[in-house]
């Protein structure tokens, strides 16, 4: 997997990462017995200036993966390397300093802005807590510049977040994430809480900022059309496992994993005759229980191509086409 992006030194490298959450205790001393395996043996890397789209259904672990990369969660196994430094076990002050280089754009622009703070206070806070500005007023010029860059009217600087629409709030959230001039941003479904009419604006803003500032994104989404628009490469997550990772055009033109195929066939095409003529793959069956996943491929319970081997062995992620990796025995 390491030679996948051999052309450039990756900004972020995730190697065989697993995340587990404890569920339920038993015995007199409350011994931990059960774990949900939220992320299982996931590896990928992101090059500087690249956008990696991370797609998966609810509960597939995409938010967990985003949080793990930001070191909000402690991995059960595997390693995370950022700018050549192993950050798997970074804690405390070192982790706090790392925040200057990696930031998060939240899904919910309503709940992620403190209702008791003005726009100036919200956007200036990262600068203040990292000692880049003496106090909130001191950061006013920087914040004005950031708001302008993010397409917010500058005269809104002293208003509270509740005076803004969802799209504007998300711009505030983006300005806050950018204030520390990070290299890497995890965007956790940044447009899924927004009206369809403003989604494009926010996605375009993220693209413009990437071009201007050379940002690297991990763009988490379940909306395949948005991901296609913004991503250079796309990773598909199913039940905590990476099932396919490929350049965007390759993934959309020749999806290899049956789950990716099913996902793509579910995207509506805005042309009724074509849409009617399409063969839609409707998945049957249940997502496996992550507390007790089945042996072999995790997609076996719903896969139309399932074979005997899939129930015994876990398919490895293999390069089936140039730079196009998939985890399937059949394809």
């Amino acid at each position: 997997m390491s030679d996948q992006t051999a052309t450039a030194t990756p900004l972020l490298q995730v190697d065989r990462l697993s995340i587990r959450f404890p569920v339920g205790r038993s015995g007199f001393w409350g011994k931990q017995v059960n774990y949900v395996s939220a992320i299982d043996d996931v590896s990928f890397s992101i090059s500087p200036g690249e956008t990696l789209g991370l797609v998966g259904e609810s509960g597939s672990g995409k938010t967990t993966l985003g949080r793990a990369v930001l070191r909000r969660l402690t991995p059960a196994a595997g390693s995370i390397t950022f700018k050549g430094n192993d950050i798997t076990a970074t804690t405390g002050e070192e982790l706090r300093q790392l925040r200057r280089h990696m930031q998060l754009v939240f899904q919910d622009p309503y709940a992620s802005l403190n209702p008791r703070k003005t726009v100036l206070q919200l956007v200036a806070e990262p600068l203040v807590v990292h000692g880049l500005a003496k106090n909130t007023e001191d950061a006013r010029a920087t914040v004005t510049d950031l708001l302008d860059r993010c397409g917010l009217p500058v005269d809104t600087i002293d208003r509270y977040a509740h005076a803004f629409s969802g799209g504007q709030r998300q711009r505030i959230g983006i300005a806050r994430a950018l204030s520390l001039r990070p290299d890497f941003i995890v965007a956790d479904e940044p447009v899924s809480a927004l009206d369809v009419s403003v989604r494009a604006q926010v996605v375009n803003l993220l693209q413009d900022l990437q071009a201007e500032l050379g940002l690297t994104y991990l763009f988490i989404a379940h909306d395949l059309s948005v991901v296609r628009h913004i991503s250079h490469r796309i990773a598909i997550l199913y039940s905590g496992k990476l099932v396919e990772i490929a350049p965007t055009h390759s993934l959309y033109e020749s999806p290899l994993h049956p789950y990716t195929e099913a996902l793509l066939s579910s995207v509506p095409i805005p042309d009724p005759p074509v849409q009617r003529a399409r063969r839609r793959i409707v998945l049957q069956g249940e997502i496996p229980n992550p507390v007790n996943p089945p042996d072999g491929c995790r997609f076996q319970t719903r896969c139309p191509l399932v074979e005997a081997r899939c129930r015994v062995e876990t398919p490895p992620l293999e390069e089936k086409l140039p730079d196009h990796w998939a985890a399937c025995f059949v394809r």
């Binding site: 909000r72 925040r99 930031q103 992620s112 008791r116 806070e125 807590v129 806050r176 204030s179």
Partner: peptide, 26 residues
Amino acid sequence: ERPFVEAAEIIGCKPKRVVFTHILPN
């Protein structure tokens, strides 16, 4: 558990600041 508290942690607020300026006023 509210997202703006996580936001405060992610931008690099120290625990004391998170507690007294983001949680306590609520």
